[in-house]
Write a protein that binds this DNA or RNA. Structure first.
Length: 373
DNA sequence: AGTGAGTTTCCTGCTT
DNA sequence: GAAGCAGGAAACTCAC
């Protein structure tokens, strides 16, 4: 059975999935935008559980972020749609019967079956694409697990791992005697579940390919994800990420499409945050209601537009994800070095400390600190 | 290549 | 409840 409406169904499926109205943002900027990953809430089904994922980065290709074994029918539709679009294939010749197929069932199909379903032109193309996604996902997840837990998973397929039950004991680590088989399986399941469902806990990574290319030739990249919450019907279970800045992935691989083109993220000496703040205060032309002196002689000042100042600082450092929260953390580090002093009980108010310079009227007047009015 | 400085990016807990 | 503050932790870039 063929349908002339399939292409519109594919389009509708995509519209349904991507109706957030995200603008076209280059991947570098997408990577840096602070709020872009908080825009979507999504639901997936896995073994009868409804899972709501809040706050994953959106690329517009959700299926690429999930293992093919966990694709829903929507993801499969999205994936087919992508290939139909890319290959300029006539979607009207496709059978609608297979548009409700989900990832696990899709993964069970061999090349002949795919060709029979999707035709000799699209079938092999889809089969090859699916194999690529399966392989990459399995390899990376296993590698991450092995790296963190020391188990050798090479003899297991993704299917066998996701369907492990507690009677299977797969530890290859003889020193892991205290670890029961059940606990082991649970650990692996938890890890796989976390990876498959876009959960990042420090060393866990998300799977995504270039939104620009959208092609299977472009290698999907792993990158860290921030602030992901998972809810199940059993109750809210927020996955905690470890403290500290998440490690940057693909360190040293400058060819990555996600490498930020900015080279000098770190400000050159002489343009420290406190100096930037000071310059805003002493240069009225730079300070358009952003900050004000509370006590000029004492060096007490206040942020009037904290986020705007943070944005300016971010602009200077070529970091579009700068926020007042981050800026203020850097400000608080100045307390220890006595560049700033605490002003207790007053929000957005800071005071220059004894190790700061160039803000006093007499200094400015005599040109100390390289500042002139 | 190693190291330290100065952030940046997370977090939790508390206060306003 | 939101916003801000405080400070721990870890990772980052850059200068030396």
């Amino acid at each position: 059975m063929s349908s002339p409406c399939l292409s519109s169904i594919l389009t509708n499926a995509n519209l349904t999935m991507y109706q957030t109205g995200l603008p076209d943002i280059p991947p570098q900027q997408l990577h840096a935008l602070p709020t872009i990953h908080t825009l979507e809430n999504r639901s997936y089904n896995m073994r009868g559980k409804r899972i709501v994922i809040n706050g994953s980065r959106s690329s517009g290709h959700w299926y690429k972020q999930i293992s093919p074994h966990q694709w829903t029918a929507e993801h499969v539709l999205e994936w087919i749609s992508d290939h139909v679009e890319r290959t300029k294939f006539d979607a009207s010749t496709l059978s609608l019967d297979f548009c409700s197929i989900d990832g696990p069932n899709l993964c069970r199909m061999n090349q002949e079956e795919m060709t029979a379903v999707f035709g000799p032109q699209l079938g092999p193309h889809l089969y090859q694409s699916l194999e690529e996604y399966k392989t990459k996902y399995e390899t990376e997840i296993k590698r991450n697990f092995e790296y963190r837990n020391g188990y050798d998973l090479t003899r297991f397929t993704m299917e066998s791992l996701t369907t492990l039950d507690d009677t299977d004991y797969i530890s290859d680590n003889p020193s892991d005697s205290e670890c029961s088989s059940s606990a082991n399986i649970q650990r692996i399941k938890t890890f796989l579940f976390s990876n498959v469902y876009d959960v990042c806990s420090g060393g866990t990574f998300n799977f995504m390919s270039s939104p620009e290319s959208g092609s299977s030739e472009s290698d999907p990249e792993f990158y860290p994800v921030s602030k992901v919450h998972i809810k199940t019907e059993d109750g809210d279970c927020r996955i905690k990420r470890p403290r500290g800045r998440p490690p940057k992935v693909n360190r040293g691989h400058s060819s990555s499409i996600y490498d930020n083109p900015k080279k000098n993220k770190h400000a050159p000496r002489g343009t420290h945050l406190w100096e930037f703040i000071r310059d805003i205060l002493i240069h009225p032309e730079k300070n358009q209601g952003l900050m004000k002196w509370e006590d000029r002689r004492e060096g007490v000042f206040k942020f009037l537009k904290s986020e705007a100042v943070a944005q300016m600082w971010g602009q200077k450092k070529k970091n579009t994800s700068m926020t007042y929260e981050k800026l203020s953390r850097a400000m608080r580090y100045y307390y220890k070095r006595e560049i700033l002093e605490r002003v207790d009980g007053r929000r957005l108010v800071y005071k220059f400390g004894k190790n700061s310079s160039g803000w006093k009227t007499e200094e400015i007047g005599s040109g100390i600190g390289g500042v002139s009015l």
